[in-house]
């Protein structure tokens, strides 16, 4: 089957457009998260999105409308628990993540009707993305990327050396909260692309691949975005041609890019 023919399908076009924006948003945030040793926040928040989507299905709302604000609130809860309850960040992620999963399982058990829909979100399917979901993904991803661009220097400074950043007037508490909320929004959008189980891969893998080969911070951000973009575009085409699940194909391509970058760095 010719690539040109594949690209003419409207579901492929929607997947390309939405997947590209979400992938770039993921990689951009992923660079900051990996360098701050917060990689697993994506995993935790994706588990919360499981509970939030279950809540939406339970009450008959469009799941993403519930998931975006709820997961954003959960991200703030992670920050507050680690600040106020003197709990380490990874433990705070564990608490919120477990509550999200447990809530989702209870709601699934109570409803006895939407289990198929809910478990469909576990592995995602970008090829089944609707026009409205594609538009929402593009708009929110654009907002995330624009906010990161606006606060780029503050984010960079606070990630490199938080204490020094404070001495230059950077409001690091605000920057930390901003990064966490942007991550929450992006995680929810990524659920449709790769599914709840693989969201953290989309945040981590393009970022660590870029970090292998970058000689400065801006290059790392650009390369991370490019690796994520190519993995999504190529993953969608391959998954269609080979009849494989799109999310898992995208993640495996990202893992391959990382392995190649690692080898290139070692021999380069």
């Amino acid at each position: 089957m010719e690539i040109i023919q594949i690209l003419q399908y409207s579901f492929i076009q929607k997947a390309f457009i939405a997947g590209s924006f979400v992938a770039i948003a993921c990689a951009t945030l992923g660079i900051f998260l990996v360098l701050r040793k917060m990689s697993l926040i994506g995993d935790g928040l994706s588990h919360v999105s499981f509970g939030a989507i279950a809540l939406g299905l339970f009450f008959g709302f469009y799941p993403f409308y519930i998931a975006v604000p709820l997961v954003a609130l959960a991200s703030i809860a992670i920050l507050k628990i680690s600040e106020k309850a003197r709990v380490y960040g990874d433990a705070a992620i564990g608490i919120v993540s477990a509550v999200g999963i447990a809530g989702g399982v209870i709601l699934a058990s109570l409803s006895k009707g939407f289990n198929v829909d809910l478990f469909g979100y576990l592995f995602g399917n970008i090829l089944a993305i609707s026009a409205s979901e594609a538009v929402l993904s593009v708009i929110l991803s654009f907002v995330v990327i624009s906010v990161v661009a606006f606060f780029y220097w503050d984010l960079f400074s606070a990630t490199f050396d938080e204490e020094y950043a404070k001495t230059t007037g950077v409001k690091t508490n605000f920057i930390n909260a901003l990064l966490t909320v942007l991550t929450a929004i992006t995680v929810v959008l990524s659920v449709k692309v790769v599914g709840i189980m693989l969201v953290s891969a989309l945040l981590i893998l393009p970022a660590i691949t870029a970090l292998q080969v970058s000689k400065n911070f801006k290059t790392a951000l650009v390369l991370g975005g490019l690796f994520a973009l190519f993995s999504v575009l190529l993953g969608i085409i391959l998954s269609y041609i080979l009849d494989l699940p799109a999310g898992a194909t995208i993640v495996m391509l990202n893992a391959l890019f990382f392995a190649l970058a690692f080898v290139w760095k070692k021999i380069g």
Partner: peptide
């Protein structure tokens, strides 16, 4: 792992 160049680090002093 941090991919900051020396030039970028110095520029942080201007923020």
């Amino acid at each position: 792992l941090f991919p900051a160049s020396v030039g970028e680090v110095v520029s942080l002093g201007l923020l």
